[in-house]
Design a binder for these strands. Sequence first.
DNA 1: TATCTCAAATGAAACGTTTCATTTATCCTG
DNA 2: CAGGATAAATGAAACGTTTCATTTGAGATA
Lengths: 351, 351
Amino acid sequence: MNKKSSTPTMKDVAREAGVSLGTVSNVFNGAQVSESYKIKVEEAARKLGYKVNRYARGLKTNQTRTVAFICPGTDHPFFGDLANYINKALLERGYRMMLAITQYSLDMEQKCIQMVTENKVDGIIALTYNPDLRIDPGLPFVSIDRFYSDAVPCVSCDNYSGGTLAARKLIELGATKLLFFNIAPDVPGEPDKRQYGFESWCRSNGIPFESLISSDSLAFRPFLQSIRERIHDGKPDFDGIFCNTDKMAYVVCQILKEQGIRVPEEVQVIGFDGTNMFGDYLMPCVSSIVQPVQDMAETAVSLLLSSDKSQIPTLTCLPVHYRAGGTTREAVKLDYIYGTEDREQGRSNGK
Amino acid sequence: MNKKSSTPTMKDVAREAGVSLGTVSNVFNGAQVSESYKIKVEEAARKLGYKVNRYARGLKTNQTRTVAFICPGTDHPFFGDLANYINKALLERGYRMMLAITQYSLDMEQKCIQMVTENKVDGIIALTYNPDLRIDPGLPFVSIDRFYSDAVPCVSCDNYSGGTLAARKLIELGATKLLFFNIAPDVPGEPDKRQYGFESWCRSNGIPFESLISSDSLAFRPFLQSIRERIHDGKPDFDGIFCNTDKMAYVVCQILKEQGIRVPEEVQVIGFDGTNMFGDYLMPCVSSIVQPVQDMAETAVSLLLSSDKSQIPTLTCLPVHYRAGGTTREAVKLDYIYGTEDREQGRSNGK
DNA sequence: TATCTCAAATGAAACGTTTCATTTATCCTG
DNA sequence: CAGGATAAATGAAACGTTTCATTTGAGATA
């Protein structure tokens, strides 16, 4: 019956409907077509099971309604959430997300840019660490958490205020001598400002504090070592800790527990990220400065897709807030599981 | 200088190198080309900054070296890990992953299939729930955790043995009366076998048990309600709980805590998934039956890409194992943080 | 009726590759 | 040195769309 068994093309649809190729194209692109022809074409397309060939279209139009998100991995809850929200925001605007994973490798970051460029994406949102990234000035690009240049808009949260807030909260909740923990990043980035905010607030308010920065750039083991050295047995000489990430906060809590130091009774701990594992159901979680992940995703997408390129801010810092968890001494009893209806976030599918 | 300012094509490279179009193509596809010509072409390509146009190539070859992974979301640690490993396995084989997120919506599952088909992927790996999914028999397809038909290979873990193992472990660790918790799935799937394995082992060994299945299909709230009803105040009439997922296990632990029941002293809890949040650093985590996520990813990829389609098993069940966490009474003290060097998993970048 | 207008339909050309039937060059063999 | 065999290079055609200059035809106008 069919001349060929392969997937039907517009030409097949045109023949089936008894119209020209251009008309078929016009139907699928919403151009001016008389109602009767439109119906004929749509019917033929349905009958043949026609699907547009995005490669032919992309070749011709040179735009793909696809945006790349380059990120270290989906294995970390923060990145996983971010990818999820960016995907959502793009979908709502009629775009597709192409995810490129770098596995925390600086070389891969450049390769991913190359790859997504070959795929003719209409823009790139990137969470990268490589300071020497070569960015094509012709391709819309939004960076997350890393400032490259005035030509590359950067979206981050208000890290500085987050640091300030953490210090203030710890003091308000009864701590008197503070510690800051971090792993030294090997390239500067927006998150560094958490420390500046923390230290600056402590200084302004005459609060004694100490910052402990594990030197070895990106590995976690030396970090464990250095905090274990700092937290010697017996009575600790501090009672409030601010960690640069939630993950570090969990580790610190564990080490405190090892040493027989009770959290939050003796020492209170605040992390950063607001990691929302298992929705809100992982309890008790670490107290944390919450990044507005969804806002960041939305903002990155709308900046990238914005048509008025002259109006785009160089750096956008979105507001953070504090979320009480199980590692601080809140006056009011926590009430997560009994929480209000709006905490339920759609279907969970039992997972 | 340049005839046109747009991105250079193979034609431009051919002109620059003083060779024919076909030769340029041969160079980039590893066909037989003399060394001197190869060098000329590569030099010209570098000079012009030539990048292959995947849309032109895809149009011509009708294959894209891209595989779609359709999954509910990257916000759940299990899916996030899976996506990460599938991406890795594909990359190692010279393929790219295209991620399509369904947000747990059955309609979206079909739309995602449509979308990735338009994008001419070479195959699909899907973690879906819709029992009526229309699957193109001409396109390689591997399903995860859901059996569709003999024509669609399914990869899962050994859920049945996992259920068995959970029951056995609880008893070995001193429990005497067991409980199983789950949310009733609205469509059957491989994970259902966890319950069968659990119950079957209990029956064979004369262990008293009870299975509590929250009826409302996919929401988490009724689940909370039903376990709270079951766990009434005072002395519980059970001392071991197996939960169908880690997330449920965390919730159950939290509710037990609310009721003043100590874990693991009075009641021990085992979950399912082996969720590896923050690498291995979230401690103490829930005791769990660990799914071999990486193996599952590798297997799905190699089944999909296997050239000998006649040899592909209908159902592949990969072995699970038990991982002690903080919710069971192990004889030996846990030692995660002090663990051996091989627990460190590459760079963590401070996140 | 002849002419003009304008919307609708047409179909050839182009997008940047790969493919493959020819052509050209090189090296042996007798 | 003629003839044959092999390897390398060539360039036109094709992939399935979109685009756009052109054609068609139905009303409206004179």
